[in-house]
Amino acid sequence: MLGEGAHRLDELARSGREDGDMGIITRGFGGRREPEAAALPPGQYLTRDFPVLTAGPTQYVDTADWSFTITTETGDRTTWSWADLMALTSEDIETDIHCVTRWSKLGTRWHGVPVDTVLEHIETAADYLMAHSYGGYTTNLPLEDVLDGKAWLAYGYADGPLPVEHGGPLRLLVPHLYFWKSAKWLNGFTLLTSDEPGFWEGFGYHNHGDPWREERYDGD
């Protein structure tokens, strides 16, 4: 384990230099060392920024016009307005996030409603969902990856509302998978009895996207 930890620290220090971000790691002086260093999945480097990556234009959606709809495999639809969603019990989330483009950001703080809450009263035999966003982006997930406190409808970041460039007013947050699964500008789920690939999953990227197993690309 020591060897593994040291290896990760080496990787982190190296990638920090490549990123021009000196001072992330101080080694050999008995000085400050990031306590979270060993928390990086394989092939990832630490960033303190929050890069903005999108496959399309930023979507500006006023909360007065916003809605979130779950459509079941039988076509039943349940829709929440912004006021409906704000009335649901929400919670703070502190978590690490990992992008398939190799940056990781540790200890990010979010606020939102557990996905369990909106699926609670939906009758379904589905095992999968397709998340949909304003602007047309899609990403697919097994239900088991969004239930039991593993995913949220997030509308707060740090101590404020979620900024639009990061998916506000609301995005999906599935922090245990690569961040392309955490769809920005979320507006619905379609529940599916058989899995279907989303925007990136059908085009070179891994269907599941577990950063700890380095499930980056199709075939990994």
Binding site: V52, T54, P57, T58, Q59, Y60, V61, D65, Y134, G135, E165
Partner: peptide, 9 residues
């Protein structure tokens, strides 16, 4: 419903 921006492209 949505206004789209070219700012991120």
């Amino acid at each position: 419903m949505t206004e789209q921006s070219a700012s991120n492209s």
